[in-house]
Design a protein around this nucleic acid. Structure first.
Lengths: 196, 196
DNA sequence: TGTACATCAGTGAACGCGCGTTCACTGATGTAC
DNA sequence: TGTACATCAGTGAACGCGCGTTCACTGATGTAC
């Protein structure tokens, strides 16, 4: 049953990708290796040919998931010529589509509280993703000093995470939409105007 | 070993209180009934004299935890004569003390992503806590129409949750403080002034 | 290029462990008279 | 008020189950000559 090196590499990538999706969809603790390997079309026994432990996979899957999310943001900005950057980011991040598809979305919103209780390694990985997104956001604040833009970006990204999280917490579709809408307007309100 | 009715009632309350703290500190899935009962000074076998299942305790503990948090906010507002309401709320919620003591703090920030994946019952309970806090916040927006205040309060509370969560995710103390500080200033910036 | 052997990706059964839950038991509390 | 019995809060052992991890095995792939 031995597979070629290329096959094995692809299998490994598939496991990491699947893990990223399943962890975001169901949570890390709630996703067993058997579930995971089965979702990747394998049996669970083969897992340890690729990874030392579940923890190692978690760290790797987190990073990959985080980067694919950042890539999507970067792509959206590029497609739109860099204009209205904050609006593009918030409308992507705070969209009903993002809310309804946690498996492909922001890992901070789906795994945040679990990560906050994890060891420093995974928390550092999560922080890196957070800061990268904050840097992208900061680059959209063009009329203020860099330090102000950075600081404001931290609050903005944290806000986006909290808003998406709360829009998923409530089972009331109207309230969920209202939370997304209100925050989007608020984040995009030009300084000097208070959004409703 | 039978205890008096009063003793039994107190035991039950103690279990619920302890559960609320342990769940917020370690997460629901990560807290076993044995851990819990032991923390409450009991052996695990007695659990089912008080509750039908772990799920029932989770729902009850969530509600109690949520209400005690709301009570603390209400108390802080009352102590301060109702002036600078938003500032009082944010400085309480976004304080290092709150960040460092999740066991006694906001359940949304500690259990949010776990709750988002739960069934409608617990999500509805969490929504109730969220809306109650939003109502308190909305009451502080005194210069705008009620509907605007309500909408802005949804975004404000979601922001507070996200900010506290992210301040716990990062293992870097300075970044953690910067996130709290930036968001506090931003939330309290009078409309028309952009905080850095 | 062909042959012989070593490697190792993936399978499926098994492991020890901790979990939620159940249960027989104890003995102080509550109740009926 | 006192007595006899039923109740039931709490104990500690046991249950079945799913988990992460290990392992013997298979057979196609990789390698040495």
């Amino acid at each position: 049953m031995r597979k070629s090196k290329q096959d094995a590499t692809e299998t490994r990538k598939r496991i990491v990708q699947t893990a990223g999706e399943e962890f975001r969809r169901r949570g890390i603790g709630e996703t067993s290796l058997a579930d995971l390997m089965s979702a990747a079309g394998l049996t669970h026994g083969g897992f340890y040919r690729h990874f030392e432990s579940k923890d190692q996979l978690v760290a790797e899957a987190y990073t990959v998931a985080s980067e694919s999310m950042l890539q999507r943001v970067t792509d959206a900005l590029a497609e739109n010529g860099g204009q209205n950057g904050l609006e593009i980011i918030t409308s992507l991040y705070l969209s009903p589509e993002h809310r309804d598809h946690p498996g492909l979305g922001c890992a901070l919103a789906t795994l945040g509280s679990e990560v906050a209780r994890s060891d420093d390694g995974i928390r550092a990985a999560a922080t890196e993703g957070f800061l990268k997104l904050a840097d992208i956001v900061a680059a959209q604040f063009k009329d203020v000093p860099t330090e102000v833009a950075k600081s404001r970006a931290l609050a903005t990204v944290a806000t986006m995470v909290g808003v998406l999280l709360m829009s998923r917490v409530t089972p009331d579709p109207e309230l969920s939409s209202a939370i997304l809408r209100s925050a989007t307007e608020w984040l995009n309100a030009p300084a000097g105007k208070s959004a409703g």
